[in-house]
């Protein structure tokens, strides 16, 4: 996903003179080809995130479209005021490419885990917050950014994530995608974003083998949220589960809850937010291991959905 994203910056820059790349202190040689081909539009600025964002804002005020790239924790927290004021207050077309969103950097510990990025980026007016599922969808997002003249937060996964997206289902910023439709009423609805959509789909397959058909919606844009789709599909579902690689505060689950309450005045009686706890990670290991510790692997998701669907509360509803 990261490779696809960075490569797209160069590819798009070839035909769009607005595009500029600003990296912090990234891998040696990153986008060297772009640097050679268009040296005036490739910047490796060093470890100064406040500067990178302010500089990008100044460029965007004069008609450019900078893509700024560094680690997710640093592009969000370190320069939050610059993101809020320089980018969002001015509503500028600057793109924040955030390496290692979620718990990708598990072995590096809590300083490098971006598990509240959705929450703090969503809180900013004019900010668009995205988390695509895989490298192919990343290409579709990158193309779509050219016509989206607002700040965009682009969360990257680990890389090598399985391709689960489908070009035939289209891509539009702010529009959710029904990945696994289920007809009728009363079924579980799984709403996921980023690389958790792949795990939600895998959970749905496990559930199907157990005789439970679950619908899966992919929300690649957390803000603006596709509330129309979410409300319409939740209304016919028996239970709703949000699944995210993010703390349970302020992320996808909170956004979906807000949308349901605002649009319908109620939420489904069976609503569960699946995500990371409100704690700094106590473990290292791998992304998969940390997800497992929070019950976010497909088997665990399937089990939670099945248990919830079979709970006394569910029986009461029926």
């Amino acid at each position: 996903m990261r490779k696809a994203c960075i490569k797209m910056v160069h590819e798009l820059a070839r035909t769009d003179p607005r595009i500029v790349f600003i990296g912090s202190d990234l891998s040696p040689g990153l986008l060297d080809e772009m640097k050679q081909e268009m040296p005036k539009r490739h910047f490796m600025e060093g470890v100064l995130e406040q500067q990178a964002i302010g500089m990008a804002a100044g460029m965007a005020m004069d008609g450019l479209m900078p893509f700024v790239n560094t680690i997710a924790t640093f592009i969000t927290r370190r320069c939050y005021e610059q993101v809020a004021l320089d980018l969002c207050l001015h509503d500028l077309p600057v793109r924040l490419i955030a390496n290692g969103g979620g718990v990708v950097y598990a072995p590096l510990g809590p300083t490098h885990l971006a598990v509240e990025d959705f929450a703090i980026m969503r809180a900013l007016p004019n900010m668009t917050v995205t988390a695509v599922a895989d490298a192919e969808e990343m290409q579709r997002l990158m193309r779509a950014t050219l016509d989206w003249l607002h700040p965009i937060y682009i969360r990257l996964g680990k890389g090598g994530d399985p391709i689960v997206s489908d070009a035939d289902k289209g891509f539009e910023i702010g529009k959710g995608i029904v990945m696994r439709p289920v007809a009728g009423h009363g079924h579980p609805l799984l709403i996921a974003c980023g690389v958790m959509t792949g795990r939600a789909l895998a959970a749905a397959e496990i559930l199907a083998r157990r005789g439970i058909e679950a619908e899966v919606i992919h929300i690649h844009t957390l803000k603006p949220l596709d509330a129309d789709l979410i409300v319409a599909r939740a209304e016919v579902a028996g239970s709703v589960f949000t699944i995210e690689e993010h703390t349970l505060i302020g992320g996808l689950g909170s956004a979906v809850l807000d949308a349901l309450i605002e649009r319908t005045g109620h939420v489904q009686p069976l609503f569960r937010k699946l995500g990371l706890p409100d704690k700094f990670a106590a473990n290292y290991g791998s992304q998969d291991q940390l997800l497992e510790l929070s019950g976010l692997q497909p088997e665990q998701i399937a089990e939670t959905v099945a248990e919830t669907a079979a709970s006394p509360a569910a029986a009461g509803i029926r």
């Binding site: 500029v20 910047f43 406040q50 302010g54 100044g58 004069d62 610059q82």
Partner: peptide
């Protein structure tokens, strides 16, 4: 502490353009 960073971006934009 925001203006000088924005100014560098504008100065670079002038160079690019």
């Amino acid at each position: 502490g925001h203006g000088l960073a924005i100014g560098t971006g504008m100065a670079l934009a002038a160079r690019i353009q």
